[in-house]
Design a binder for these strands. Structure first.
Lengths: 159, 159
DNA sequence: TATTGTTATACTCTATAACTATA
DNA sequence: TATAGTTATAGAGTATAACAATA
């Protein structure tokens, strides 16, 4: 301990981040369950909507998920006809994955439900603070990788 | 869509939170590995230091972890003599868990390593912004449960 | 030969149930 | 009877390896 505590506070945010993310995930799972979706389904749907369609590899890369896990994820969504897989005409190895109308509709509903979950978890923060938090998270996330606000954002005018 | 986009931006922070927490965890795992620790070990050590000792149940409650998982976690730490388990004299069912000197030392080293991981993950944010982020996370986290800044905080004067 | 998607599989994480020793 | 800690175990999540189709 030096005499001057001037700089002082380097705070570790890692554990807090982990803790809060876990709570958010648990609450999100609860509110999404009635819609037959899980949080991971939602991020996939969101990226697909915002990108207007994507290959499975591209999706894996955007979500920083292992591509083998994308398969089952899309199987779920396809079984409920929320997405469609088509072979790409340009490269027949590729699947072009796109949202269906049902998918877009379900996504809207899910986003409304999620807003409720966030209200619970972030209820201690004022709206302006929540906006600040969002902005900080978005910048930190987009700095190191492709996934950024545009892909993970949702404006909800529709609840 | 109504005419006035006034309120507008309700942004979903859930996916961002999850994404960033995952990155932080991965980086933390990397920098902690040489010290023989994992992120979960660190939060346990931190809580034990800040609380000055705790029963395993209390620890489980603070960390919002299942108490059965605390057992293995403490086994790891005890095997490296970073913590001690003693039967409580007042209630011999209870274990009083406390940090050893080695544990306190290892915790310091780990916190320095973690600071590096955070620099990587949050590098896009200015110091003042990181402080703001920390403060928002802390308030959101402490609102709903016991785990709060004091328990998960680490001032590092010692790197 | 490399790449996209797929399957099978192993490994980790977490939670549930049953047991013990104390209260 | 209830509680603290422990063990065994099953389920979910995630990653690795091998394979088929296409480039």
């Amino acid at each position: 301990m030096s005499a001057q505590p001037l700089d002082s506070s380097e705070h570790r945010s890692g554990a807090l981040l982990d803790h809060l993310a876990r709570r958010m995930r648990l609450r999100s799972e609860s509110v999404l369950a009635p819609l037959g979706l899980r949080p991971r389904h939602l991020v996939a749907l969101t990226v697909l909507r915002d990108s207007g369609g994507s290959s499975q590899q591209a999706l894996a890369s955007t979500l920083e998920m292992d591509s083998t896990n994308i398969v089952g994820l899309l199987n779920d969504l396809e079984a409920e006809q929320l997405i469609e897989r088509r072979r790409s005409p340009e490269d027949r190895r590729r699947h072009v994955v796109e949202l269906t109308q049902d998918g877009a509709k379900r996504l809207n509903e899910a986003e409304c439900a999620l807003a409720g979950a966030e209200d619970e978890v972030l209820g201690a923060l004022a709206p302006s603070e929540r906006e600040t938090l969002y902005e900080l998270l978005r910048r930190a996330a987009s700095a190191t990788h492709v996934i950024c606000g545009e892909a993970l954002r949702a404006d909800v005018d529709n609840c």
